[in-house]
Every structure is written in structure tokens, then in C-alpha cells.
Design a protein around this nucleic acid. Structure first.
Lengths: 189, 189
DNA sequence: GTCTATAGTAAGATAGAC
DNA sequence: GTCTATCTTACTATAGAC
């Protein structure tokens, strides 16, 4: 279990930094300290190891996001808690990066994990917006589904812009803009 | 010039679909119909050919975006023209994809092109927001820099979500949400 | 369960004939 | 300018000893 766990953790880091296509089994073995044969003993190959790593990422991220979205008085504050959480911005989003990876989309197992994660995220934000509508914080005419998707999109794009600029400030600026727009909708309720 | 142009066009397509790291010189040669030696006659190697392709992408995209942002009565309409332009959503953004590519960020020449493109895009949207503020369409207190960055981020993230879902509908939903939020800010002016 | 050795393929680039 | 070899390195995976 020790070695298997080391492999998954090493894969999680390399997947984050390099993506799936550009991460070689060799690199994972070197990073984990495991020998050549260990990976093929515990997993069928690169894809199955990556799947285990991605599933673990999913558990961690679902836990974090749920906790963040439960922290704050108002719906807007809870969304802000989530969006402004401390992040390693320049490393990008563990899942957003995979959605852009050509080899991930060729793997049914991996692309399913990515698809489900974003469906879940969008629903989480939409649910908080709905709570804000119920409490009168947001106008009843606000479409929580599209706004929820837009907020998750803006977060993903914020990572992209920060990486492109090589500057976490671009991430913060994008988040500022989204929250500013949400505040205008909120003040109209 | 014929062969050189074919190489650049083939690279543009492959870069769009597979990104930089996952695109091999071999694949570009096959797609362009050029032989092995031709690429190394016209370019120093993969990186220089990719740079030529990315620069051509930059010219095309700047032209399109400028034209879209000039089409519409109000600032909001002009932004909507741009955001709702017909796109090959599931192929992703030619530049956004590169920002997530590990090998692009290792190349100073390529990463510079990507960085400059997004700085320019963010400034374009911010300029339209400023025009909207000047005309009284948007409130004077709106921060055009952060909102401009947020809009570009949402667009990038919309591509990510659509690819993750394997469904262009996710893109449209995100754009709907952004425009809905912009409309709330606009109606408050 | 982990190791070393090695298979077979493709990567990115170069050599040299035409 | 374009072609057909060919080089070197790295990839993903397997074999078989310990």
C-alpha cells in the first residue's frame, strides 16, 4: 500500500504540473522512488494510475469546495469564500488542465471523471445562487444554472489568464470582476 | 512559399486540436504533404514552425475580435457580438489551449505570444466597458480592468467546460450567465 | 512485491543524394 | 528545395530473476 500510495501521490503532482499526455511513467517512477516493475504490478498502466490519481483529486476538491461554500453569511459571501480561497494559481486547476489535454479526452475513463467533476461544480454554485434567490439576496429572475456555469467558467479562465501572463495577479483581477458583477445583481434584489 | 505555407497551415490545425507538446513534426509533415527535409529547410525545427503558426493565429484572431467589438449599438451589444460569434467550441481556444500546454511555457518565444494575446484581449474588452461607462450605459464605479479580465476569463472557461462536458451547450450556458450579469450592471447605470 | 533488462515504437533532428 | 535514409533519445510496456 505504501508503494502504491507513493505512485498515486507522485502522479497527482506530475498530472498537475505537466498534464496527462506529457507525463511519462518513467517520470512518475522517478518521482515516487518506486522501481520500474512496481507500477505495472499495482496498475495496468499509465491510464489506470492516472485514473486513481484523478479520483483522489476529485475527493479532495469536492471536500474543499463543499467546505468553502458553507462558509459565509450570505450566498455571495459563500461564493466569495470559494473563489478567493488560497490557491497555487500558476500551477493551474488540476481538472481544467485535464480538460484541455488531448490524451485525456481519448480516454473514456479519464474524460468521464473530468466531465463529472465540472457538472458537480456547476451545480454547487447554482445551488448557492438558488439559496440567494430564496432569501431575497438575488433577484428571482436570475438564472442560477447559467450564472453557476459562468462563475465556474470565470474561475477556470482566471487560471488560464494567470498562466498565460505568468502572474497570479491576472487571476485575482478576473475574480474581482466576477464578484463585482455578482454584487450588481445582488444589490438589485 | 507554397510548401512553407502548407506547413504553417497544417501546424495551425494540429496545434488547435492537439496542442504543442502532443504535436509531432512527423504529424505536421504528413498533414501538410511535405517531405521530411522540407520542414527543416524552412524552419529550424518544431518550435520555430509553431511560432509561425501561432503568430498567424494571432493576426487572424485580432482581426476577428476587433471587427466583432465594432459591431453593435451599445457597449453591451458589442461585447455580446463577440461572445456569441460562431465558434468551433469543442476544439477549444487556439490560445487558451497553449496557455495550459507544458512545453509552450518552456518556450520563451511561444509563451510570449500567448501572454501578449491575452493582454491585448483583456484590454479590448476593458476599452469597450470604458466606452459604456462614458456613455452612461455602465455605472461609473464599474472597474473596467477587472470586468474586462473577468469577461475574457469566462470565455476561456466556457471553452474548458464545453470540452469537459463534450457539449457546446455548456459554452453557451456560461456565455448566457456572463451576459446576464453584465446586464444587471448595465441596468443600474 | 520489487527489481533489472529489454522489447517495440515514435519522438525530434541531421546527413547527404538529387 | 525536396527527397530518403539514419541517428539518438525517450516513450509505454513486458519478461523474467529475486
Amino acid at each position: 500500500m505504501e508503494t502504491k500510495d507513493n505512485l498515486i501521490e507522485a502522479a497527482r503532482e506530475l498530472l498537475w504540473d505537466r498534464g496527462y499526455a506529457a507525463t511519462s511513467p518513467r517520470a512518475i517512477l522517478d518521482a515516487s522512488g518506486a522501481g520500474q516493475g512496481s507500477m505495472y504490478h499495482h496498475f495496468r498502466g499509465k491510464e489506470e494510475l492516472a485514473l486513481a490519481a484523478v479520483q483522489r483529486n476529485g475527493e479532495v476538491i469536492r471536500g474543499q469546495m463543499s467546505a468553502d461554500l458553507a462558509t459565509g453569511e450570505t450566498a455571495l459571501q459563500r461564493i466569495e469564500t470559494y473563489l478567493r480561497r488560497e490557491r497555487q494559481v500558476l500551477r493551474g486547476c488540476r481538472f481544467g488542465k485535464l480538460a484541455q489535454d488531448p490524451d485525456v479526452m481519448d480516454s473514456a475513463a479519464l474524460s468521464d471523471e473530468v466531465a463529472q467533476m465540472f457538472v458537480w461544480m456547476r451545480a454547487q454554485i447554482a445551488a448557492v445562487v438558488d439559496e440567494g434567490k430564496a432569501s431575497g439576496e438575488f433577484p428571482a429572475s436570475l438564472d442560477s444554472t447559467s450564472v453557476g456555469t459562468a462563475v465556474v467558467a470565470a474561475l477556470q479562465g482566471a487560471y488560464v489568464l494567470a498562466r498565460a501572463a505568468g502572474d497570479p495577479g491576472a487571476f485575482d483581477l478576473a475574480i474581482d470582476g466576477v464578484l463585482e458583477l455578482l454584487r450588481w445583481a445582488s444589490s438589485r434584489s
